[in-house]
Design a protein around this nucleic acid. Structure first.
Lengths: 342, 342
DNA sequence: TTTAATGAATGAAACGTTAAAATCGGTTCT
DNA sequence: AGAACCGATTTTAACGTTTCATTCATTAAA
């Protein structure tokens, strides 16, 4: 902020009061047509741009929202934020972005910083905030929407994917191919998504009458690295799994590499599935069978929900859907095949 | 923005004037220790958070910067923004993020919107702004740093990668392996990076005494799709290239897939190189030889440069490096080998 | 002619903050 | 006794807006 021309400067130039300028610029009918035109022309000539900081103070809204993500360089997060930004932009909201790096403490710091900036609303992707922070969040009185929140809880609005359903679809696909020894590689970082996906995995096994084998459950870190390490353990088993359900595509990416390193390949030796359908999934060798998450759409929905929350402001009884569930779509590619198909 | 407790409310509660509160909160020595303590306690109890919008107005700085990117879901962009945000955060700046979608008009719209928000500085990644907008940018008087700007020009500060150098390193690697028919798949979207990489390609050929073969130059869109289409053309050639220099890793990703579709593989039939060293490069089959761009570091540098610009504010003659060049690092993996090595 | 109503513009207050200037009772110096 | 200074605080103004209340001509109605 430096030298910007203000409404008062314009007023002086046009020889009217600053309130007349204010009205003229917003096309108020309370100002004479000619005067209005003159002022508008002057404003253009001098490159006047209204200051949102001045405006915010009196209007009591900043037309700004804050968006907290774990890590913007995560290929899952990018598209979500893009969806958020798209809607925000359509409605003339500006978006503050901050990374929490998966640290709940940092996450709250960011939220506090957004609060100081007086954002109109806050969006949190993959929130780690546990019960600890809920009281503080509540007293903030800022509309809050969680995207794929990692702790279930009814204290806020949320948009998330139907993990149990998608998980079951994936398992049914594997089971119908004839797999009986199916492993699960989860995300150590935990969170709700892992819990739900694993629950779906276990439920599907149960329904198929297959006893749960503890040895077939490994944990990674939702990054390729973790996938490598996890599948390495699985390959050491005397009775190897014939299929591996990976927590997400990144885990699967690591699994792919490790599989090759062991001289094996998918789906011939082992079927592999991912979750997310990140951009690279169709280009892998073999193209990855996975569950498509409508990431962009999730971002859009979350922002739309937030806007609705903003609109119904004090009116309270708007009756908005508190927990929007979106469904994932099973995308069958070439990384899954009947067992022993080599 | 709704019901927030203000400095005046606190003043009333503590029975002092609002300016005393203001001072107390900033630990000014001009206020009595006990009073100060009392006020701080009260502030905490009531969850007081200073308003940056009020503060900005009088301080004439918002401690906010705007960051324009082409597309936040691009895996190259994420890490850059992450670097930006990391530094911003360390210094207590908040970051506005917006996507330009590669549209120069939209890019200027975003810049204007940032200007209305009175950001202290602006960062633009992969800027498309041509000569058309320079005058407007200049009169904005907001410090501006470009990251990998697509049009050369001296009107602003910039941080970018040493494309010619990296390009040459890559070519020398290929040449030293014995390749003589090397193709180039560029980025149709053009821009400076493509120009520089291609120039490096041509120069290396020239230095090696290899005549340029027009047929070996194809263009994609910097996405996997484009890589597919481009390499398809190359594979149709009666005399195929023995190596392909792809504009970036995404292009190489597409090339990989198409190569396999044709029943060929790298590096046996054709060596493939990428550029960027995106997260998936080491996990591909074969692991991709590429040039590592220090994306995170570029983001950090750009933000640091912007902060320096902000610090020297009016003082003018600070003599800062206007165009920071960072060098890429050749990362040799398994996608390159001597020709005919199959 | 006085009173009302209308159109167009101005003045003032408010939003939350900082900071310069002013106040004020109490020393201390000269 | 008066000036000068002290620490602690208050008053006031400013930042860029919006908006409510006011003013001031004109014109229309009584």
């Amino acid at each position: 902020m430096g030298k910007h021309i203000s409404i008062k400067d314009l007023a002086q130039i046009a020889n009217v009061s600053h309130s007349t300028v204010s009205r003229a610029l917003r096309n108020s009918p309370l100002v004479n047509a000619e005067t209005s035109e003159l002022i508008q022309r002057l404003a253009n000539e001098h490159g006047y741009r209204p200051s949102w900081v001045g405006r915010s103070l009196v209007m009591r809204e900043t037309r700004t929202i804050g968006c907290v993500v774990t890590n913007i360089s995560d290929p899952f997060v990018g598209p979500v934020v893009r969806g958020v930004e798209a809607v925000a932009n359509e409605r003339n909201y500006a978006v503050f972005l901050a990374n929490s790096n998966g640290d709940p403490y940092r996450e709250m710091e960011v939220v506090r910083s957004f609060h100081e900036r007086r954002v109109d609303g806050i969006l949190v992707a993959a929130s780690r905030v546990g019960g600890l922070y809920i009281p503080e969040l509540a007293e903030l009185e800022v509309p809050l929407v969680l995207i794929n929140n990692q702790h279930s809880g009814e204290y806020a609005y949320s948009v998330s994917i139907d993990n149990p359903g998608a998980s079951r679809d994936l398992m049914n696909h594997l089971l119908s191919l004839g797999h009986r020894r199916i492993a699960y590689i989860g995300d150590r970082g935990g969170g709700q998504s892992d819990g739900e996906r694993r629950a779906g995995y276990e439920l599907a096994l149960k329904e198929a009458g297959i006893p749960l084998d503890r040895q077939l459950i490994e944990y990674g870190d939702s990054q390729p690295e973790g996938g490598c390490a996890a599948i390495r353990n699985l390959l050491r088993l005397r009775r190897r799994p014939t299929a591996v359900f990976c927590y997400n595509d990144l885990t699967a990416l690591g699994a792919y590499a490790e599989l090759r390193a062991a001289g094996l390949s998918a789906p011939g030796d082992i079927s592999i599935t991912g979750f997310d359908d990140l951009f690279f999934a169709p280009y892998l060798q073999p193209p990855l069978t996975t569950v498509r998450q409508p990431m962009h759409e999730m971002g859009r929905s979350a922002m739309t929900l937030l806007l609705e929350l903003l609109a119904q402001n004090g009116d309270g009884a708007g009756e908005l859907e508190r927990n929007v569930k979106m469904s994932g779509e099973l995308v069958v590619r070439k990384s899954t095949a009947p067992p022993g198909g080599n």
